[in-house]
Design a protein around this nucleic acid. Structure first.
Lengths: 222, 222
DNA sequence: TCGTTTAGTCAACACTCGTTTACTTTTGTT
DNA sequence: AACAAAAGTAAACGAGTGTTGACTAAACGA
């Protein structure tokens, strides 16, 4: 049979897989909600998450084989919006004036708008299971790689070897990650503190760019 | 009575408070040992730690009011050796030739020699309870402050305002923290990988110093 | 030497946990 | 209309949890 309209309709109405995706999302959201507080993912219980999604513990297994698998779903969910933002930013072209400020602001605004996701990532980056840590690290490395490619297009960075470009990109990513982690421990209402964090990150980024301008890759192996 | 030799003797022999400190340390070591694996502090159970110290759960309460208090003891224990190292390094004077390499190497060697402590700190920095996170952050801020004071003595950094010195110190601390976190996920036997991490951190540090050389605090508020 | 602290044991309490099994009810297919 | 698939419920299991109270034995102070 053909898989035309019927399938498409089933995706957005009260069909069976619609319901399935619905409670799957409820599970993910329940986990993120529980992580909003002090708890870490490894301290969440399966029953607790199921309860948050108004589901029987046994029904949990219809969606995930266990908490580990839920963790990976959370990673996917968290990085998806980040990828989307990066894609849009790339499509819009890199702003040349006040580029640093614009980039930092764009990213940190995004973090602010997706606190639950980034809180999960920040918490599990070093504390989670090996599999989850590795998955997160892979995403971050990928991100650094993309940034290195973007940087390579700048004429001012012509003196950089490929390896040193990765190093520079890693440094820049570190700056925004550090700012992110500070941001997550600041209440969204405290605008003054938020601005302070933004400015701080911008300054550090500017200092790094100054260093990049004076860098010479041919001397990097002494 | 006088508190002379008797007290001193009791401190290092089989007295009562000697025994108490002995099992207190056993509890701390048991917790650190459990944290060597994938586990995070918040997922440790009181009974588990007591078992590791060959103690009854009830006896745990003779030393700590609960796991929270044990957590703070772990923080003290972890930062104590770091403070000691910093003190020695300061007393020895700052090496002027290959200063960056020497500093980075000294610190990362220290981390390598106290993996359990730093693993605990790295894990709990963002994942622990608020009280523990705040305690860790306080220590890091203190550390940044000390570094800023050291930096202020360099003539080359004369153009730096006090605030910008903090910013620079924060950036440098971030570099070594990032390296630390990489280090902890690398087996100590993999010397090649360790050297790669060292070199990477050195490079980043050198680039930051280059940026610092070109920095002008009077322009930092645009 | 004789009471008093005190580090530690033992046993019990009321929970929560992950997982499995048998079941109901709703949805999709032929 | 009849049958199959699947999302969800209900109940039970054995195991591990934090905390408490009564007790034991050893070190201490007078």
């Amino acid at each position: 049979m053909l898989e035309g309209d019927a399938t498409v309709a089933a995706e957005s109405d009260g069909g069976r897989d619609w319901r399935k995706r619905r409670t799957r999302r409820a599970l993910i959201n329940a986990a993120l909600a529980l992580l909003e507080g002090e708890r870490s993912f490894s301290s969440l219980s399966l029953r607790e998450v199921a309860r948050g999604a108004r589901i029987t513990p046994a029904a949990f297994y219809r969606h995930f084989s266990g908490m580990e698998e839920l963790g990976h779903a959370l990673i996917e969910d968290s990085f998806e919006s980040l990828h989307e933002m990066m894609r849009k930013a790339r499509a819009g072209g890199l702003p040349s004036t006040h580029m640093i400020r614009a980039s930092v602001t764009t990213f940190l605004d995004h973090v602010n708008a997706h606190r639950a996701h980034f809180r999960f990532i920040a918490k599990e980056r070093f504390s989670g299971s090996t599999a989850i840590r590795v998955a997160i690290r892979k995403e971050v490395r990928l991100w650094v790689g993309e940034l290195a490619v973007d940087l390579s297009r700048f004429p001012a960075l012509g003196k950089f070897s490929a390896e040193d470009l990765q190093m520079l990109a890693g440094l820049m990513v570190n700056v925004v990650i550090a700012a992110t982690e500070l941001l997550l421990d600041t209440p969204p209402k405290d605008k003054a503190a938020l601005v302070r964090i933004y400015r701080h990150a911008e300054k550090q980024m500017r200092l790094v760019m100054l260093g990049a301008g004076a860098w010479d890759s041919s001397r990097s192996g002494d």
